[in-house]
Design a protein around this nucleic acid. Structure first.
Length: 615
DNA sequence: ACTTTCACG
DNA sequence: ACGTACGTGAAAGTG
């Protein structure tokens, strides 16, 4: 690799296990990379197995088979023991995407998560601090392969492709081959061994750059945040399988029924935009909006007016509803809710009816977290039916939530130091009410407040008058006028926004957040600087809150972080105390001169109860 | 692989 | 001078 000879050893005998243990003694002062190969990425699925554990330096790797299905006893236990000893004792380890392997070590090898974590450096964290961009945005992304190609050896052997070919030879796919490939297949062990050699080399490259660029403290912070998120993931969130089964059937029926209606109009698949647009045009509807590639757009913003439905799916009474448009809307929604949410939760639950969504604590360019499999940060919020499926841990427990009040606006006020907005916050005003009154006078209406709120967000997000008019539903001229007034009233925000974009224009194309994060900007979208600054800072406010919650011993109650809130569960008799404690730990009394307050909600048995569900 | 759509903050 | 909403995850269809 990179012109240097490397060695990969595969443990095949009892003596090999001893040789591995002897090797671990010789590398005690070195940073050793750790990695695993498993039957799947579903750590908590029944039938999940750890198959290989690997350790390595820049030049030497050990591949240790521990799969109970293929390694005979007592060698398997001896090998597993040797792996556990290394994980428990070695002073400095590096892992690429450490949350995954650490959770496996904790659940399937009985390793103590806190102890292991205190000795681990996660190279995805370092890579994200050095460049948070994904490959689609001109960055390298966080995959081991791409990072290693960039920093270690652009000609590093591409073992994955060969391995996938081996999967196909045994009648499997990219996804299923991991469980089926022979434990001693040479491509499999080669792939496994190379990964730790690459990982060790990547560590040295990334840690050097992170140190030079002063990311040490931020890296430490991110490791602490990732540990709290790993604990939340390990505990999981309980689902109600009986409710989900019934819901799945009901949604399937709805999708079939509305799909049948669409079929009467010649639309055999409601998910085929070309079919839908052709049928609508054939019925005499005029479609004007187009997609990026010039096709006629038929998303729900286009279809709802045709179906005479407003944003909340209520009849408007403005026209004769187009039955096809309505059928497509309802069929698609029912199918999506069933497949992406109900069935996803049902299929991913563990033996205790808990789901363990994968939480990536440091994901977006702005450092925002992401939650996947299933995407619990994106469950429908306008209706309680999906969230009703997530329930408290035991009978007699309840679900609650704590969220920050208007956190992005407050952060914008604090960072810009805008005196008018800061004063309004100190005086305890509702920010959007306050803005509406400033612009429209004391007799402002709900509609005025909505426009004021939209313009406030527009400032954070960098939107123009057209987008804001579309979003708020207000007339373009009124939005333009409001934007002008906004700039006049909140001069500090205007000045701050201009300064951020100007710096990006004349300096390097990046913003540096108060946390010390360097966020690269796209050449064509320098205006995004304000949004990046605010969104990223809001993320760090929640991340710091997670650390305070953990310090207060509240992590066992936490179920999810959702950008500006946490979801928790607790026994009903202490729920008020737990909720207050969480709300208090999250509160930031003085964020650059502005208080960040929290709102506490205590619900019932299900998360849906916070959205109007009866239970 | 790419596009389109839809769910969230 | 002009004009741009930001960030995600996931499924399904098309080719």
């Amino acid at each position: 690799m990179a012109g240097e000879a490397t060695t990969i050893r595969v443990v095949e005998t009892r003596e090999d296990v001893e040789a591995f243990t002897a090797w671990t003694e010789t590398v005690r002062s070195r940073v050793v990379a750790f990695d695993t190969e498993t039957t799947s990425t579903d750590i908590y699925a029944p039938g999940f197995r750890l198959r290989l554990a690997q350790f390595g330096t820049e030049t030497d790797a050990w591949v240790i088979p521990v799969d109970a299905h293929q390694v005979p006893e007592p060698r398997r236990s001896l090998a597993a023991r040797a792996v556990v000893d290394m994980l428990n004792d070695h002073p400095r380890l590096t892992v690429h995407n450490a949350t995954f392997d650490a959770l496996i070590a904790a659940r399937h090898l009985g390793v103590d998560l806190d102890s292991l974590w205190s000795r681990v450096t996660d190279t995805t964290i370092l890579a994200h601090l050095c460049d948070p961009r994904g490959p689609e945005d001109g960055g390298t992304g966080m995959s081991l392969k791409a990072l290693a190609a960039q920093r270690v050896d652009s000609d590093a052997p591409d073992t994955a492709t060969g391995l996938y070919a081996a999967f196909r030879e045994i009648g499997h796919t990219k996804d299923t081959g991991w469980a089926a490939i022979d434990l001693h297949h040479p491509l499999y062990t080669l792939y496994a061994g190379l990964d730790v050699i690459l990982g060790a080399r990547l560590y040295h490259s990334l840690s050097a750059e992170a140190a030079v660029r002063g990311f040490g403290r931020l890296a430490e912070f991110e490791h602490a945040v990732a540990l709290v998120c790993a604990k939340i993931e390990a505990r999981g969130f309980r689902v109600d399988p009986g409710y989900l089964s019934e819901l799945s059937i009901r949604l399937a029926g709805e999708a079939t029924q509305w799909g049948g209606v669409a079929a009467e109009f010649g639309v055999t698949s409601v998910n085929a935009p070309a079919q839908v647009s052709a049928a609508l045009v054939g019925m005499g509807e005029t479609l004007t909006e187009t997609t990026d590639t010039g096709a006629l757009k038929v998303d729900k913003e286009v279809l709802k007016p045709l179906a005479d439905l407003d944003r909340d799916w209520e009849r408007v009474g403005a026209r004769e509803p187009n039955l096809l448009a309505e059928a497509v809307l309802r069929a698609k929604r029912a199918a999506k809710w069933r497949v992406s949410y109900a069935d996803a939760m049902l299929s991913r639950r563990d033996a205790d009816d808990r789901i363990h969504p994968s939480i990536t604590a440091l994901k977006a360019r702005t450092a925002r977290m992401s939650i996947s499999r299933p995407p619990l940060q994106q469950l429908p919020s306008g209706d309680w039916v999906i969230r009703r499926a997530l329930v408290a841990d035991f009978p007699g427990w309840v679900v609650g939530g704590v969220d920050y009040a208007a956190v992005e606006m407050r952060i914008l006020a604090a960072l810009s130091g805008d005196p008018v907005m800061c004063q309004a916050i100190h005086d305890g005003h509702d920010l959007h009410d306050y803005t509406a009154e400033l612009i429209f006078g004391p007799a402002f209406t709900k509609g005025h407040r909505k426009i004021a709120k939209g313009v406030g967000f527009g400032k954070v997000y960098g939107g123009g008058p057209d987008t804001l008019a579309r979003q708020t539903g207000a007339p373009l001229e009124q939005v333009r006028a409001t934007l002008r007034e906004y700039d006049r009233v909140y001069r500090g925000i205007k000045r701050y926004s201009r300064r951020l974009v100007q710096r990006a224009e004349y300096g390097c194309r990046e913003v540096i957040t108060p946390a010390g994060r360097v966020l690269p900007l796209d050449r064509r979208r320098l205006y995004a600087a304000v949004n990046y600054m605010v969104q990223s800072t809001a993320r760090d406010v929640l991340a710091e809150a997670l650390l305070r919650l953990d310090e207060r011993g509240l992590t066992p109650y936490l179920r999810l972080p959702v950008h500006d809130e946490v979801v928790w569960t607790a026994p009903a008799d202490i729920a008020a105390d737990v909720g207050r404690e969480i709300a208090d730990a999250m509160t930031v009394p003085d964020f650059f001169g502005v208080p960040l307050f929290t709102d506490l909600e205590i619900g019932g048995y299900s998360w849906g109860s916070l959205y109007g569900a009866p239970l």
